[in-house]
Amino acid sequence: MDLTTLLDETAPTISAPSDTTLRRARAALDTQVRVSQLHVATARRSRRRRTGLVALVSVAAAGALVVAPTVGLGGHAPQDSAQAAAVLVAAGAAAAGQPDTVDAPFWHVDLEFAYAGKEPLRTQLWIDHDGIARVQNEELQAEPRAVPGDDGVYTSSFAGSSLDDGRTTDWAGIAALPTDPAALEALLRARIGQDRGPTPDVELWSVVTGLLSGAPATPALRAALWEVAAAVPGVELVGTTTDHAGRTGTAVELDQTGIGWYRERLILDPADGRLLEQVAFDASGAVDHWSTYLEQGPAQSAPDIDPPLCGPGSGVSC
């Protein structure tokens, strides 16, 4: 047989990928683009220190620009761990009264992220039940667009918190987490294992704060997460302080500067268990960056997604 004929006859006939396949792939790609754009913006502005990358990576893991690990907001000397635990357990009890996620089509997170000495970057996320987030980002909107048809509202894949191997955690996955604090801690520690993060305790802290800062967690899960946070060795009470939005809250800290990370501070509202702010201090005690959670909760609507840049639905052929 002629080789050309054989190859022609055996050339695979492949069906086109489904719209769902393309949508999921595009969502994952958009997440990577968001992170890459932040790296570009960071490089352009000569933002200091490579350690800031830790924040960007954590942010990406939480779905887009959200989670920077936290550390103290300067000023107060940390007090003992028992007091910190008591504050966090109380926050957990208060969090049980937060609005439930049931029946809401979206989980909305409105935050500002800033490096010390820089203007805050406002970002909003609307995360649907499939774990797909619509993202609005002031910085990205302000960037000159390399391609037409984009007003700054994107779809991207919300990666939940990197509970185990970085797989996307959708609402169902988060809802499946136990709400008993001991069972939740055991599960999270089992998923984290011994090899992730600088230490298992620091990684547990990172996962818990990630879920508290950007995940569509039910009030019961949120309450359990605060209790798990209270059990992390080394967490200390700072006391009453004010976040960058001017709200008064109670601050706790976990000092990770001994392993080259930050001293992370969480500011929470003891009245309702809301996470108000995360602040990261460097080893010298200076504020490095922070995330202020202006609003977080269920939402009934979200901005429309941009049409595709080209192809079906865009009016522009590729």
């Binding site: 086109a16 990928p17 667009r145 390399a146 391609v147 840049l309």
Partner: peptide
């Protein structure tokens, strides 16, 4: 410098 340009390449070549 403009990683979002990959989006148009995706629309063009994903299939």
């Amino acid at each position: 410098l403009h990683p979002d340009a990959i989006g148009l390449l995706f629309e063009r070549h994903a299939r």
